[in-house]
């Protein structure tokens, strides 16, 4: 049977959105994210919650290899969001990545154009650990003085990818890191340096 979506679609979606909004507005902070979802594996409840809150017929989803292999995942997302699931990463508004360590390079995704930098993808990565006490040093809009963030597992060259992404500002992708029950974000405006 199809796993159910939000118990209270209006208010659950609002709370997930506010958590993501606060995470993006204050990079390096970790926001609580309660989902109440039990989606088919390897889709995590947090990836599912972001998709259910923000994707729809106007915002296509791209799934990484692990998620794309599972017909149950595609069925769950299609039923609850109505979003088109695309094979072409460049078409995606949101990319769901269950295996964050194997996250494809950012240039596969829409970066926006100089006149419309907002026409760019948001990558949602499932991570197992998040910490704001160690790891990278962050600075930029939304950060008072400086902030730190550590997430794992991620590709070893993630800081270099994030640096390239930031160098392309205002174009680029935005990153949401979703751990069990918690979410953090790295918008393209954030400068990331290895700790």
């Amino acid at each position: 049977m199809l796993a159910r979506g939000f118990a209270d679609p209006v208010h659950n979606a609002q709370r997930v959105f506010r958590a993501v909004m606060d995470a993006l507005a204050r990079p390096g902070t970790i926001q609580a994210l309660a989902t109440g979802l039990a989606p088919p594996a390897p889709l995590t409840p947090e990836l599912a919650a972001v998709a259910l809150a923000l994707a729809d017929a106007d915002a296509p989803l791209w799934l990484d290899a692990g998620l794309a292999e599972s017909p149950a995942v595609a069925e769950f997302l299609r039923f609850h969001t109505g979003a088109r699931i695309t094979d072409d990463p460049a078409e995606a508004a949101f990319a769901l990545v269950s295996d964050a360590a194997a996250c494809p390079t950012f240039d596969a995704f829409a970066q926006g154009t100089p006149a419309y930098p907002d026409r760019s993808a948001t990558l949602v990565l499932a991570v197992s650990d998040l910490s704001d006490r160690e790891g990278w040093h962050l600075d930029g809009p939304g950060i008072r003085d400086s902030a730190r963030l550590a997430a794992s597992p991620l590709p070893a060259d993630m800081p270099a990818r994030l640096a390239r992404n930031h160098a392309g500002f205002p174009q680029g992708i935005d990153l949401i890191l979703a751990a069990p029950g918690r979410v953090a974000a790295l918008p393209r405006s954030t400068r990331v340096q290895e700790g």
């Binding site: 209006v10 915002a59 930098p117 948001t122 205002p170 935005d174």
Partner: peptide, 28 residues
């Protein structure tokens, strides 16, 4: 809740997220 339908809210929410990621840029 809050007058707007959920589809409209999602569209506005996506615009708000991009607006935050690109400070000062006007998102249509």
């Amino acid at each position: 809740f809050a007058y707007l339908d959920e589809g409209t809210k999602r569209m506005i929410r996506r615009a708000i997220l991009k607006a935050i990621a690109i400070p000062g840029y006007q998102v249509p």
